[in-house]
Structures are given as structure tokens and as C-alpha cells.
């Protein structure tokens, strides 16, 4: 099914401003960065998490532990969507028990990825709490899940696709709303 660009939602500059704002909101909401850890969901949540962690570090002058989560082993559609997804490594090199976990992903859609991520994190320990930050919230939730920090709310139709590009993976920073050609 071919898709064509409908409208660009963010460019490199607006994406950077959004991430700066989210970094400030995280610090404000948590009254500092005590016990704060940041976990990015593969694939595009990881570079976004790195950038947000770096911005928080620049603002607060402390280092923030950063981890990578692969949720493939926790998916609820393993035998429903062939071919099977490639499992990549989870790398969370710190204990998360009693930590304030900020979970980061690029797009919040059905909520199923976040459900998998929550189960996965809770299997690793018992965090004090988990908050969710996403670059784009496009609606159409299938589970009772919401984000604590949202870069941009974008009402979409189910036929549309939100494409997030990051320099680390795609060579450019942009968010594009695509529709069927």
C-alpha cells in the first residue's frame, strides 16, 4: 500500500523545541531529577530518550541513567502478525526498583506497545512510578493508557500513518503525516 506525504507536522527545529519543552516539564512535574531514570522504547524511542536525557542533564547538571527497552518478547500479537518481529536486546544497566521511570516513545497510537513496555519494566523490578512521554499522540487508543508528556496532539484517521524520522536512524529529523495514495 503506497503512502504519500499529506503534511509535515515537525521539522528539525520544532522537534528540538518540543524535546526541550518536554525535558523542562519532566523536571517541573517531578520537582527535580532525584531518582529519575529514562528508558527509550526501540527503535525511535531510543534516540529521543537520549536527547531528552541530555537536555535534562544540561539543565540540571547531573547525569541521568538511560536504558533501552525492546518489547518484542512482550507483544500480544506474536502469532497474529507474521512474519515474526526481530527480537533485539534490552539494555537497562541499572536497577529500577524505587526509581522514577520516564518511558519514552515516538508515537502513541493503540497503546499496545506501552502495555507491553509496562509489563516488561515491571518484570525488571518495582519502580516508584512510571510516566510516559511521547513525541506524537495520534489517538485511537485500544487500551486505557495516556501520556504524561505529549509533544504534539495530532487527530488522525485510521487510514493515515505518522512517520517519525530521527537523524540517528533516518538521517533527518521530521514528523510527517502520510495518507494512502
Amino acid at each position: 500500500m503506497p503512502f504519500r506525504e499529506k503534511v509535515q507536522l515537525m521539522d528539525a527545529v520544532t522537534m528540538d523545541r518540543t524535546l526541550i519543552r518536554i525535558a523542562h516539564e519532566i523536571i517541573e512535574r517531578n520537582k527535580g531529577v532525584q531518582d529519575l531514570v529514562i528508558i527509550g522504547i526501540r527503535t525511535r524511542g531510543v534516540p529521543l530518550a537520549r536527547r531528552i536525557a541530555k537536555k535534562i542533564e544540561e539543565i540540571e547538571k547531573v547525569s541521568i541513567p538511560m536504558g533501552i527497552l525492546d518489547i518484542t518478547m512482550y507483544r500480544d500479537d506474536l502469532t497474529a502478525v507474521g512474519p515474526q518481529p526481530i527480537v533485539r536486546q534490552t539494555n537497562i544497566p541499572f536497577r529500577i526498583t524505587d526509581k522514577k521511570v520516564i518511558l519514552i516513545d515516538d508515537v502513541l497510537f493503540t497503546g499496545r506497545t506501552i502495555r507491553s513496555a509496562l509489563d516488561s519494566i515491571i518484570d525488571l523490578g518495582r519502580p516508584k512510578f512510571i510516566q510516559l512521554a511521547v513525541l506524537i499522540d495520534r489517538g485511537h487508543r485500544e487500551l486505557p493508557i495516556r501520556a504524561d508528556y505529549v509533544g504534539k496532539n495530532v487527530p488522525t484517521s485510521l487510514e493515515e500513518v505518522v512517520e517519525v524520522n530521527v537523524v540517528e536512524e533516518d538521517g533527518k529529523d521530521s514528523v510527517i503525516l502520510m495518507e494512502e495514495d
Binding site: 518478547m73 512482550y74 506474536l78 526481530i86 527480537v87 509489563d119 525488571l124 523490578g125
Partner: peptide
């Protein structure tokens, strides 16, 4: 593919809770 996939699964055995719901 099998060898690469095994890398990810090796980490599970090092956790406190050595169990994932995959199967």
C-alpha cells in the same frame, strides 16, 4: 538469524525475574 536472536534472549536469564511472556 537464530544466533542474533539468541543474543537478546541471553539477557533474560540474567534478570531477577527470569521469565518473559513470549510463548
Amino acid at each position: 538469524l537464530i544466533l542474533d536472536t539468541a543474543k537478546a534472549f541471553k539477557e533474560v536469564s540474567t534478570r531477577d525475574i527470569k521469565k518473559v511472556p513470549t510463548l
